[in-house]
C-alpha cells in the first residue's frame, strides 16, 4: 500500500508531467488563462489518464507484449511495435466514450468541459503516461495509480499557473514579454519549485 502511495506522490510531484518532463505543454500554456477552465482541464486529464493507462496496460500485456499470443500457438509473435497505434486508438476511444457518458448522464459537467474533452486525444501527457507504463513495465494496480497521480499532478500545476496568470493581468510588462514569454518564465519558476520535490525524494 505504501508503495502505491509513494508511486502516486512520485507521479504527481517529482515527475510532474508539465513542469519536470515538459509533457502536455501545449494545453498547459494555452488553457491556463482562467482558473475555471484550468480546473476543468485538470479534472478531465485525471479522469482520462486514470482510465487509459490501466486499459493500455491490459492491452499491452494480453495482446502486444512479446509472447502474449502464446495461448494461440504463436509464442514468437512480438507485436510491441504496434503499441503506439494501439495506445492512441484506446485514448481516442476513451475520450469519445467519456464524452458520450458525460453528455448522457452529467450534462452540466459536459457543458463545463466544452471543447477540451476532444482535444485531450492529442495531449502528449496522456500518451506519454501509457508509453512510460510500457517502458517501466508497471502492473495493473501500479498503472492505475500512476495514471491518477500524473493526472492529479497536471491538475495542480495548471491550476496554480492559471492563478498566477490571473494576477498578472494587471502587471505592466514589456510588450515582447506579454502573453507567451512571461508564461514560459513563470513555468520555469514553478519548475524550480517542483525540482525541490525531486531533491526531497532523493533523500
Amino acid at each position: 500500500m505504501t508503495d502505491l502511495w509513494s508511486l502516486f506522490l512520485r507521479a504527481s510531484f517529482v515527475e510532474n508531467m508539465p513542469l519536470s518532463l515538459f509533457l502536455g505543454l501545449c494545453t498547459f500554456l494555452a488553457l491556463s488563462r482562467r482558473t475555471e477552465t484550468a480546473l476543468g482541464l485538470g479534472v478531465a486529464m485525471t479522469a482520462v489518464m486514470g482510465v487509459t493507462v490501466p486499459l493500455n496496460q491490459l492491452l499491452y500485456v494480453w495482446f502486444l507484449a512479446p509472447g502474449a499470443w502464446g495461448w494461440a500457438g504463436l509464442p514468437e509473435l512480438d507485436l510491441s511495435y504496434l503499441s503506439l497505434v494501439a495506445f492512441i486508438g484506446v485514448i481516442a476511444a476513451t475520450v469519445q466514450l467519456l464524452e458520450m457518458v458525460l453528455d448522457r448522464f452529467f450534462p452540466a459537467v459536459y457543458a463545463a468541459f466544452g471543447v477540451f474533452l476532444p482535444l485531450l486525444t492529442v495531449q502528449c501527457a496522456i500518451l506519454a503516461g501509457s508509453l512510460f507504463m510500457q517502458e517501466r513495465r508497471y502492473g495493473l494496480a501500479e498503472s492505475a495509480v500512476y495514471g491518477l497521480g500524473s493526472g492529479a499532478g497536471f491538475a495542480v500545476a495548471v491550476v496554480v499557473l492559471s492563478a498566477v496568470r490571473t494576477r498578472l493581468a494587471y502587471a505592466d510588462l514589456p510588450d515582447g514579454l506579454r502573453g507567451l514569454g512571461i508564461t514560459f518564465i513563470l513555468a520555469g519558476l514553478m519548475s524550480l519549485g517542483f525540482a525541490s520535490f525531486a531533491l526531497m525524494a532523493a533523500q
Partner: peptide, 26 residues
C-alpha cells in the same frame, strides 16, 4: 541541464524575437 532552464531560455527567445518583430507581440 535541468528542466527550468528550458523554460527560461524559450521565454527569453520569445521575448527577443518579439522585441525584434513588434508585430508579434500579444
Amino acid at each position: 541541464l535541468l528542466a527550468p532552464s528550458g523554460f527560461f531560455l524559450l521565454g527569453g527567445l520569445v521575448w527577443a524575437l518579439r522585441t525584434l518583430m513588434p508585430e508579434q507581440a500579444e
